[in-house]
């Protein structure tokens, strides 16, 4: 009997050693809410690209108690966690910040608490990328107007102005201190510019009424609006350059592979590698704007 038990024990040890030798890195995906399309797409592309089994958690799927998540994270104790959205990242960082964490789909990642093992894909294209793509569609673009508040966007504005200058484009800015200044400042600006670049700024876009009026005034003056979010398509934006969500998931997978293979990750938080372009061709024709016809092959959504 003793001999039989010994054989069984040796067999079990052997089996466990074989299993653990075959085991790849343990990867977990935490999605802040998989019902949100862009989060869902990023997750799908990540899992497809990483091509390793992953443990997936949807924080939006049901009501989680904080203790449950804590237990789950410690039980799994993954080698790497891909966190989609701020909520997912904050939880992973709270409990297992000693593990590799890759994030994406986080607005303004600079405000996040980061650890030595934090990596990510930013949700914002930098100003130079955006100007490059606007110029790619409108090669004749020379003067772009920007309404901004120094409180939120001074640094961004300076960076955009510098990048534009290198491309022979002048960024003409109007710094606003009060919400009610948006429309009066826009009126003056419209006389000096070829296009208005609508950026994310709570002082400039304080309410829907102001936003509608900005679009209306630009339309009267036939000044195209360039922007960053697909929500502005319905208001009449001419070109919208935003982040391509499937690419974000693939990029997070590429970073994860580098981290797990202990390669040097040159940039811990990267700019998004893929862009999504919306172009209102109908409006461009109405305004009589000259655009690069070949750029149509790079446009994801065309209104004609």
């Amino acid at each position: 009997m003793k001999f039989f038990k010994l054989i069984c024990f040796i067999g079990l040890v052997f089996l466990l050693s074989v299993l653990s030798a075959d085991e790849g890195p343990k990867i977990m995906v935490i999605n802040s809410n998989a019902a949100v399309d862009k989060y869902k797409i990023a997750q799908e592309e990540f899992t497809k690209t990483i091509s390793t089994p992953v443990v997936e958690i949807d924080l939006g799927g049901r009501k989680w108690k904080i203790g449950e998540i804590e237990d789950l994270l410690y039980d799994e104790y993954p080698d790497l966690v891909y966190c989609i959205g701020t909520k997912a990242y904050l939880l992973a960082n709270k409990f297992i910040s000693d593990r590799n964490i890759v994030f994406s789909s986080v607005i303004n990642w600079h405000r996040l608490p980061l650890s030595q093992k934090t990596y990510g894909v930013s949700s914002e294209l930098n100003p130079e990328m955006q100007i490059t793509l606007y110029r790619y569609i409108f090669p004749g673009l020379k003067r772009i107007g920007v309404l901004y508040s120094s409180k939120y966007n001074k640094h961004w504005f300076n960076e955009a102005q510098k990048a534009a200058k290198e491309m022979g484009i002048e960024i003409i800015g109007r710094s606003l201190s009060k919400r009610r200044n948006t429309l009066p400042e826009l009126k003056g600006l419209l006389k000096e510019i070829d296009a208005l670049w609508l950026i994310s700024d709570p002082v400039v876009m304080s309410d829907k009424k102001t936003l509608i009026e900005v679009f209306k005034q630009c339309d009267i003056s036939k000044i195209p609006i360039l922007s960053y979010h697909n929500a502005f398509a319905e208001y009449g934006a001419m070109v919208i350059v935003s982040v391509d969500n499937p690419t974000t998931g693939r990029q997070a997978a590429a970073i994860s592979r580098e981290v797990l293979s202990k390669d040097v990750v040159r940039k811990k938080v990267q700019l998004p590698a893929g862009s999504h372009i919306f172009f209102n061709l109908k409006k461009a024709d109405e305004y009589g704007l000259k655009y690069r016809e070949m750029a149509l092959s790079a446009v994801n959504r065309i209104i004609e």
């Binding site: 130079e128 490059t132 391509d244 690419t247 700019l271 590698a273 893929g274 862009s275 999504h276």
Partner: peptide, 17 residues
């Protein structure tokens, strides 16, 4: 890394991705 367009691929090198 599959990206949507050639210009994205080129910018990925230019911006270090």
């Amino acid at each position: 890394l599959t990206v949507p367009k050639d210009i994205d691929a080129l910018m990925s090198v230019g911006f270090g991705m």
